[in-house]
Design a protein around this nucleic acid. Sequence first.
DNA 1: AAGAAGTGTTGACCTATGTCAACGTTTCAG
DNA 2: CTGAAACGTTGACATAGGTCAACACTTCTT
Lengths: 198, 198
Amino acid sequence: MQVPDTSPLIYKRLSSYIMQRHNIDHEQMKYICSFFHPVSAKRNQILVNYNETCRIYYFINKGSLRLFTVNKSGLETSRYFAFEGMFITALPSFIDQQPAEEFLQAIEKSELLAITRKDFYEMVRTVPEFGHIYREILEIGFVNAQKRIYGFQGFDALEKVKWLIKFQPKFLLRVSNKMAASYLGMSPSTLSRVKSRL
Amino acid sequence: MQVPDTSPLIYKRLSSYIMQRHNIDHEQMKYICSFFHPVSAKRNQILVNYNETCRIYYFINKGSLRLFTVNKSGLETSRYFAFEGMFITALPSFIDQQPAEEFLQAIEKSELLAITRKDFYEMVRTVPEFGHIYREILEIGFVNAQKRIYGFQGFDALEKVKWLIKFQPKFLLRVSNKMAASYLGMSPSTLSRVKSRL
DNA sequence: AAGAAGTGTTGACCTATGTCAACGTTTCAG
DNA sequence: CTGAAACGTTGACATAGGTCAACACTTCTT
């Protein structure tokens, strides 16, 4: 974890994320950004461990993170991937302050902005625009999760891959076959075979 | 659709839902309830049609509703079921005011409380406790959707059914095999066979 | 009350996808 | 730079679960 950086450069992406959604004056924006602290993560670094209580929400400046679980037989299941300009955390743990039943991991060398839970909910409470943004994150997250469930239901392997390419075109380019397969709910062999026939 | 009822009885369940989460005085509660109008629905009645834009959020006093889709070959997929004391709507359509890509249907004779989108967002904006409740609905919905995704990933049919019995014990008792199967992502035959071996 | 339509169960059969193993290629640590 | 470990691809084989059909039972409709 680095010392907070006063340079506004690192807040560029976050600022435009917020600006796209709300008109906020410069002072207010500086105030919001002041709660976000730069953090670097190495490839494969674990940011939230299983059973660890998650106290931080991350915004991704560069790189990518994923949420995954490991079942008793050691099989990894990836649940969610986030890339530049997206927010991510181990939400169930973050909300309830219970031990996470999942891992949050950087899958590339990443540059992040971190806000603590305390500050986050403080802002949600005191800055209406920020509360609104959080609501949007939840709405979009919920809707996407629903779409993924029914989008996949009854699809065979080929259809799932086509669906993924259609709705998240960057995905297969950034994510290893193994992780993509664990996200799609199929074996790496099957994903490999499917890709070979387009 | 019935004429609004002045009896407080129909607001009992909604009031206790809110009371369990926030301390609200009697006047405020009456104010909130005044935006919810009683609606009856028959078994199998469609409340939101495919391509219809959804303008109403429902709270269930009695009965049960489901969200489902139909694919090109006529196969139904159930996405979500709600029972007494739960909120439900075709959320993507409700949020964005785009035509719904799903159906909202009563699966039993149901008594509902309906609030229009306009009133709903008005309340979210003006009544902090209500805004908070909406945030909670979204948080819980998102977390549950995530849990369902990874809960099912890699599970075989038997494990899915056990998972369902564990986390939604009432489910199989209230929902037909056909609908339950379409929720679990397996054929009715398979669900039937699985149930026969516990 | 009777016929029609829908639902649940079960059997026979088939196919998509998982498992396992082999092998070449890429990545990474020292 | 080099060896070890991880990854991607492909083949052979096994199997869970899908499809289809038959039948009994329930439930709607009139």
